[in-house]
Every structure is written in C-alpha cells, then in structure tokens.
C-alpha cells in the first residue's frame, strides 16, 4: 500500500493564470496537477498524490484563517497520510500560504507536511518553527533540485525514520535542539573551534546565535503641522513607460520621481512596473497604491506642512532583501538631506 498525499499549489502552477487569477477560491482536483508530475517521479511507488488543492495567492493572503480551514476540509475527504505544499521558491504570498497551511496541517491533522522555499521568502521566518521547509533556489528553475529533496524528506517523515541535521537533510533550521553525545569534551571542542578560528580555518558552531534584526520605533511626530511627509512604495508606481526600466520582479534599482505641481496620479501619466500583482487597478488609478491625491488635499488643508516633491518607488516582487536594504538606505539618505520628517510607505 502506498501513502496517500495531498498536494497544495497556487493558481499559477495549476496553469489557471497569473495575477489576474490570483483571487480564485480554493478547489480540489483528483490526482496530479502541474508540479505534482515531478513529485510522482520522485516519490515512486511508495507514495501517491491522490488529490491537488489549488488556491489563488491573493485569495489566501487576504483570507488566511478562512482559506486554511476551507482547504483542510477539502483535504480531509481524501484521507491523506501527508501533505506537500509548493515549492514556493521566492514567491512571498505563495510561501506564506504554504507556510500557514503547513502549520494548520500539523495542528489540525497531525500528519507530516513538507514545503520548499528560498530562505528569503517571508514564509520561512513565519513558519519554519512549525514544520519542515526544504531550502530551494529562488525561482522555478530550481524545481528539479527542490522536488527530490522534498520527496525524500517527506518519505522519511512518513516512515518515521530518524532525520539528520538540517544541513544533511536540506531543510531550513527550525530551532529545535537535540541532545547528542560527543567523544570530546565541550571544552576541548571549544578550544578546537577557537584555534581553527585563529588560523582562519573553517569551523561549525554547535549553537548559532539567533539573529534578531529589529529596529526600535522612532519617536512620534509631535507637531504634524510642521511635518514634511514623503511617499515611498514597493508597489512599483512610476511614470507611464517606466523610464528607468525598473524590473517587474527581482528589482535591481529604485526610481525617484518629481511630483511638483501634480495633484492626482492619472492613468495618462502613471502606471505600475510591478509584475507580482494584477496591475489593472493601479494602471487605472495609481493613487490606489500611492495616495498623492489625498495627500495633496490634506497639504492644502494644512494638516501637515508639505508633501515632499519627490516620491521613491521600487518593485517588491521577489526582490532580494539585500537589494531592498541598499535601496532604502540611499532613499533615506536623500530624504533626510531634503528635510523630510516622516515617511508613508505603501506595499501591495
């Protein structure tokens, strides 16, 4: 008898459509859809994908609790022994959906679940403690690498086999500590590591320190009437024609655009460069992403002193954390030099 698997994928991998279909509600289909084919090969005779759930990324991200519950109900009917979610690579909403669903499967169904994501996918930090997420490359080009790793980890979990360390098994560290006996005393191992470090040789720490990169909130604006407000967005709003060629995904740059004298971002002059959401509504009226019209009104009413005459934009779609950090450091430097006192940052 082979194990029964239910697979979760998004609308894109199901071949239903891209962003214009990201709102579709969950549905379940018998058998294999899309990347399930590759899993079938990797799982062999030991396990079979009996059904596939498909759900739109935006639907899931906008209704996380409800979507998880709906999908679990659909899955239960197929009596799964385990669940595969994704892989989601570096797709943020898809990764978040796979993560939320994986956590729900563990909690509600109590069966093994495996997903696959690129380490910078926001779903990793949110859900790596809850279940096993295999480390994958950042795009679907890494499917051939991701699938066998996910399949082999899932089979081990199903058979109750003992797992090795995250580095050996290929999953992202979950922060679980296990006791282990060494031949050498801790003091000796520490001295070995220390001497290796002094000699510039590689060594592996036994207890990596967690990284908490948090920034304390800045003090509030005391007097709004004196404030100079700037707009920044990861939603890709730019002049029509995208003059700086900001990439639709994995952006390598940001844009700076002058809005002196502009009261409203109309469709004749502004659009979005973003390739990670349905651009229809932003292209019709970019104020839906970057609220220039309303801020101009409030500026005139004297709610605050001034709307800064430049806005900054990039595309937050699969864009590397390191790039975003670099963009924002430069943007902040320019804003401060121009006398801006507070920032509204919008994200889609």
């Amino acid at each position: 008898m082979s194990y029964r698997i239910v697979h979760y994928i998004n609308q894109f991998y199901a071949g239903i459509g891209g962003e214009e279909k990201a709102d579709i509600v969950p549905e379940i289909r018998e058998g294999i859809v899309g990347p399930g084919q590759a899993f079938k090969a990797a799982l062999g005779a030991e396990a079979e994908i009996v059904a596939t759930v498909v759900c739109g990324d935006s639907y899931f991200a906008s209704n996380m609790g409800k979507a998880s519950a709906e999908i679990l109900d659909m899955m239960k009917k197929y009596k799964p022994d385990a669940v595969i979610a994704g892989p989601a690579f570096n797709a943020g909403r898809y990764g978040t959906a796979c993560g939320a669903l994986g956590e729900a499967v563990i909690k509600e169904l109590g069966i093994p679940v495996v997903s696959g994501m690129y380490p910078e996918n926001p779903g990793v930090d949110m859900y790596k403690k809850s279940f096993y997420i295999v480390e994958t490359p950042d795009s679907a080009a890494g499917m051939r690498k991701a699938v066998p790793a996910m399949a082999s980890l899932l089979l081990k979990l199903l058979k109750g086999e003992k797992l090795g360390t995250p580095a050996v098994e290929g999953y992202i560290e979950r922060g679980v500590r296990k006791n282990k006996f060494y031949d050498k005393l801790a003091a000796e191992r520490a001295v070995d590591m220390f001497t290796a470090k002094l000699k510039g040789q590689p060594f592996v720490t036994e207890y990596p320190m967690p990284v908490f990169d948090r920034v304390a909130p800045n003090p509030a604006i005391k007097n709004m009437k004196d404030a100079v407000i700037a707009l920044v967005t990861s939603g890709g709003i730019c002049p029509v024609g995208n003059p700086d060629h900001i990439e639709a995904s994995s952006a390598s740059k940001f844009g700076e655009y002058d809005i002196t004298g502009i009261d409203d971002l109309t469709c004749d002059f502004y659009c979005t460069a973003h390739g990670g959401y349905d651009a229809t509504y932003a292209d019709q009226d970019a104020d839906r992403v970057l609220p220039v019209d309303v801020l101009r009104e409030m500026e005139r009413e004297g709610v605050f002193k001034k709307l800064h005459n430049k806005f900054y934009t990039t595309v937050g779609n699969g864009t590397a954390v390191a790039s975003s950090k670099r963009f924002a450091e430069e943007i902040a430097r320019r804003l401060i030099a121009d006398g801006v006192t507070a920032v509204i940052l919008t994200s889609t």
């Binding site: 909130p217 924002a328 450091e329 943007i331 902040a332």
Partner: peptide, 8 residues
C-alpha cells in the same frame, strides 16, 4: 532601513 536611518 528607513526607520533605522532615523525617520518615523
């Protein structure tokens, strides 16, 4: 990063 630079 904008917060880190000192802007609310």
């Amino acid at each position: 990063e904008i917060e880190r630079a000192g802007l609310p």
